[in-house]
């Protein structure tokens, strides 16, 4: 229920069956509505196609970081042991790259892993604790066992005229308002 100090910011359809969710997601995708998302307790396979999402760019970032790590290791080991302070060990060449391979490999992995984690934070839009989903009390159900489609819109008429019939047509029986607290108290 909407109370004072809260304002409507969209519409939510709750689902229990992944098949219905996917069917509904396809309908929303084809309707052309832009600001929307599905929230699920676990990744539902095939939902990304139904939502029309693009592939994640994270692998590209990972491989770039990995080779950055590799090049850094080449520069670090060769630069320090062969150029900056030449260190002759066992009569081997100063730039004995074979002996540096373990370091190349480890930094390759380390850089890749760090970049992947940072990419997750950036692309998954983490470190943003405030959300109308918390204000509406939806997260409790979504991280538990229910599936939700959230359509964001500030335009109340648009919500009632366009969004609600869309969810109803998809067979959603539990449709609720999405609202946001307008007072400043933070909620997690």
């Amino acid at each position: 229920m909407i109370e004072s100090g809260q304002k409507k910011v969209g519409l939510v359809g709750m689902f229990d069956d992944p098949n219905t969710l996917i069917a509904a997601a396809k309908k929303v995708r084809d309707s052309g509505h832009r600001a929307w998302d599905c929230h699920t307790p676990y990744p539902v396979h095939g939902l990304e196609q139904a939502m029309g999402l693009k592939d994640s760019p994270i692998p590209t970032i990972t491989i770039i970081a990995a080779f950055t790590g590799f090049v850094s290791a080449v520069v670090l080991t060769g630069g320090l042991n062969a150029v900056h302070y030449p260190l002759r060990v066992g009569g081997k060449p100063l730039f004995s790259w074979q002996a540096f391979v373990p370091i190349y490999f480890e930094l390759f992995i380390l850089f890749a892993a760090l970049a992947t984690l940072v990419s997750v934070v950036v692309y998954c839009k983490l470190l943003r604790w405030h959300s109308p989903l918390h204000d509406s009390g939806l997260m409790k159900e979504v991280t538990g066992d229910r599936l939700a489609i959230v359509l964001e819109s500030a335009d109340e008429e648009y919500i009632e005229q366009t969004c609600r019939p869309l969810l109803e047509a998809a067979g959603c029986t539990d449709i609720r308002h999405l609202f946001e607290n307008t007072d400043d108290e933070p909620t997690i």
Partner: peptide, 20 residues
Amino acid sequence: LGWKGSHRAWVHYEKAYLLF
């Protein structure tokens, strides 16, 4: 970290998990 189970996030998350 403010995880909301959004599928737009799951897509990246699953890819990153696979990479890890």
